[in-house]
């Protein structure tokens, strides 16, 4: 049996709400296998982004265990969690979140630089990925010179550059027109072919139609609504 790339068990997150607390994630469970694409939908404020943050080790849960690529992380120090994030997790954001002073190829090279890889290898791999995603001729452009769709594709290429076990995407198609949204969703679906466990928060059919599993967030838990 394949070991899940992501395993969440008994996750609880609550925020203070005046004298009380508002429970956002309540005894939540989730298991995602390598190469599986899971799409999560839910109402605004349901806790989808919080779930992504906990899964991506960007914040700690109040209770429960997050296991990434077979490594339990709840007892880890911040430094150790940073190392797990660097080696196993990549993100794609709604607004691409590219660094304004870096060209497209440098956005990817930065990933390798943070990981302490040799710059010649990093540059070759970065160019290869941009080429693969149809951005070869945009490699030297700054984010301000790219269209919304191109920025998002560079964001995805950056995520692939990390060769992650887990790819987390937060509404990556929300700000794109249907045609570009479809192209981006296709690229994310391509992550499965790379053996990456992909968790996408999305509402549009472009993403939902490609999901291996569709989960809905309700009352702090995930409900399986089919594939």
């Amino acid at each position: 049996m394949t070991e899940p790339a992501v395993l969440l068990e008994g996750i609880r997150v609550a925020f203070p709400d005046g004298p009380d607390e508002r429970v956002v994630l309540d005894d939540l469970k989730l298991s995602v296998d390598p190469g599986e694409l899971v799409v999560i939908s839910g109402q605004s404020g349901a806790g989808k982004s919080t779930l992504l943050a906990v899964t991506g080790l960007l914040r700690r849960a109040d209770a429960g265990e997050v296991t990434i690529a077979g490594t339990a992380t709840s007892a880890m120090s911040s430094r150790q969690r940073t190392a797990v994030r660097r080696d196993h997790i990549a993100f794609v954001y709604q607004s691409a979140n590219l660094l304004p002073s870096l060209t497209a190829v440098e956005q990817l090279e930065l990933v390798g630089h943070i990981r302490g890889e040799r710059s010649a290898d990093v540059r070759r791999r970065a160019r290869g990925l941009l080429d693969e995603l149809g951005l070869a001729d945009r490699a030297s452009q700054l984010p301000s010179q790219l269209s919304g769709g191109e920025r998002q594709r560079v964001g995805i290429a950056r995520a692939f550059m990390a060769e992650p076990s887990v790819l987390i995407a937060d509404e990556p198609t929300a700000s794109l027109d249907p045609q570009r949204a479809d192209s981006v969703a296709e690229l994310l679906a391509g992550a499965s072919g790379r053996g990456i466990a992909t968790i996408v928060v999305a509402h549009d059919t472009a993403a939902l139609s490609r999901a291996d599993r569709h989960l809905r967030m309700e009352d702090g838990r995930l409900i399986d609504v089919g594939g």
Partner: peptide, 16 residues
């Protein structure tokens, strides 16, 4: 601030 958060999300340490 958001850029620093992004770098940390990518696995950059405080030292980096």
């Amino acid at each position: 601030t958001r850029q620093i958060g992004l770098l940390k999300a990518m696995g950059a340490t405080n030292g980096y």
